[in-house]
Nucleic acid binder design. Structure first.
Lengths: 286, 286
DNA sequence: AAGTTCTGTTTATGGCGTACACACGGTGTA
DNA sequence: TACACCGTGTGTACGCCATAAACAGAACTT
């Protein structure tokens, strides 16, 4: 079952889709390992996730894990997809506009990261996405496909919002993790940095903001950032909508149009795009 | 010189400000170690930065470093401040509006991270900021203090933009690092993931975007995100500006005003805020 | 019944940060 | 001048990590 070695991403694909899934038997299994990994990371963060500790938690030796999982990185991939399947995703109804739907997706991602903070800590490129992660991505993409944005813009919007959620979650995770390890709260620690604060005078803006209490009653970084981000995206969508008939490109996907439709008010690159525009208009979505 | 042990952040403060700086002598020195660390991280990423390798590069034993630096984490703090001093910061003139100035800061941060990709990889809370980092922060804050935003909003805006830059830089770093280590380019790797792509049919939005070439000609994530972010911030600033006379709070900092200035069109919480508003109007900045 | 495969264990390698005891040279004091 | 001290660099050692390789027993196949 583990013939493909750690080097082989195709093997991870098989594991993610649970191919060759044996019915539950006593002893180790992929699911048990993944679940133990999730529990451990929930409790101790991604840095605390070691093969030793996962094995210990299950009552087996370290190396026994390698019979079911190629390695630590792949275990993390599996854990990500595991927890991505926990809730369906957004909580916005289909009738809502793109903004409500995209915001719901962002909040769903935020919730997920509050349940499993280590998600935001996952680093490194080339993670093989599993079915649950793909489903979430698909859903997020679908929130903004009917907005007049080009395909590349749709992808960019979803990536931007996704990385924003990750970035803000990471902020909290790192604070919490440091607090857990050191036993000293964030405020206590900064409160003790007198020798540092001494040096901050002479920076006029910083001290003025400090004196005005800007650091005492901060904005919620997630709420604040999400609002700004959605506003920025809304502006783009409005621009695309207002200039929808003037551009030379396809009204739907922005791709160049072979024969610029002279006289005709709207230009499509393909029949499928024309169809989509029609459906969009008749569905009456924003 | 290293009496304060690794536990003591005040010691790091002293090191960051180079207190007790001996004149250059042969042998090891804090500066030499920090510079070697920067070179190493530039070449091999933050994961490749080990005390052993830094020492090796300098021709000393590993433990010799600990005579000058409390530990690896603190070395990283020192490295961050070192490179933060490389360029003054933004390249926008003082006469420009907030948007040009904030954008220049963001681009300066982006440039810095392109020169030193490991900056984006630095993780963990409670990093003691050094003089150069504080100077950059001060400058970034000053770009949006004269916009009518509340102090908390100013701080939130700067944090948001800062984390955005980090997040986008991290995206590139991780791709480049994986490519460097594996010897396989991003495109080649994804190109070989046939068994994964097979499973993507059935996700209609995803496949449509794929067929429309959205993944082939992607938006530049940094440029795209920066534009959206600044647009969103601009909207907030406009809102604050338009409602500047209606709110009960201070026009400048938003803090509550003791005696709501009845009849008077503008309310200030303090003389300094009134003064700032005056200067702002006469300076004619946006 | 014999062979093969699947599963878990044992042992070992090489990397990491860093605690601790030590060695050596220069400097200040008796 | 002698001696103690301190700043600086070294050598050894510990405990953690991922994982390669060889092995042992059970289960299933033929």
């Amino acid at each position: 079952m583990t013939r493909g070695r750690a080097e082989d991403p195709d093997h991870v694909v098989e594991l993610l889709w649970r191919e060759g899934a044996a019915e539950p038997r006593p002893g180790l299994s992929l699911d048990r390992i993944v679940r133990a990994g999730v529990e451990l990371a929930d409790a101790e963060g991604l840095a605390g996730l070691s093969m030793r500790k996962v094995a210990e938690r299950l009552g087996f030796t370290t190396m026994s894990l390698y019979r079911h999982v190629p390695g630590r990185d792949q275990l993390i991939d599996l854990m990500c997809d595991e927890v991505a399947g926990e809730t369906a995703g957004g909580s916005a109804a289909a009738g809502d506009g793109w903004r409500a739907r995209l915001e719901a997706c962002a909040r769903a991602g935020w919730e997920l990261r509050r349940r499993h903070p280590w998600l935001a800590e996952v680093r490194g490129g080339r993670h093989v996405p599993g079915p649950n992660i793909i489903a979430r991505y698909e859903q997020m993409l679908s929130t903004v496909t009917d907005t007049g944005l080009t395909p590349a813009e749709v992808i960019a919007v979803v990536g931007l919002v996704g990385r924003f959620v990750d970035s803000e979650a990471l902020l909290l995770v790192e604070a919490a993790e440091t607090e857990r390890r050191s036993g000293v709260s964030e405020e206590e620690w900064w409160g003790g940095r007198d020798t540092l604060f001494e040096r901050l005078y002479g920076y006029p803006t910083l001290t003025r903001l400090w004196e005005q209490g800007g650091f005492d009653r901060p904005e919620d970084p997630f709420e604040f950032g999400l609002a700004r981000l959605l506003d920025g995206i809304e502006l783009l969508i409005r621009q695309r909508y207002e200039s929808r008939d003037e551009t030379g490109g396809c009204v739907v996907c922005g791709a160049p149009v072979d024969q610029p439709a002279a006289g005709r008010p709207r230009a499509y690159c393909s029949a499928s795009c024309r169809q989509r525009a029609y459906r969009r208009r008749t569905a009456g979505q924003d």
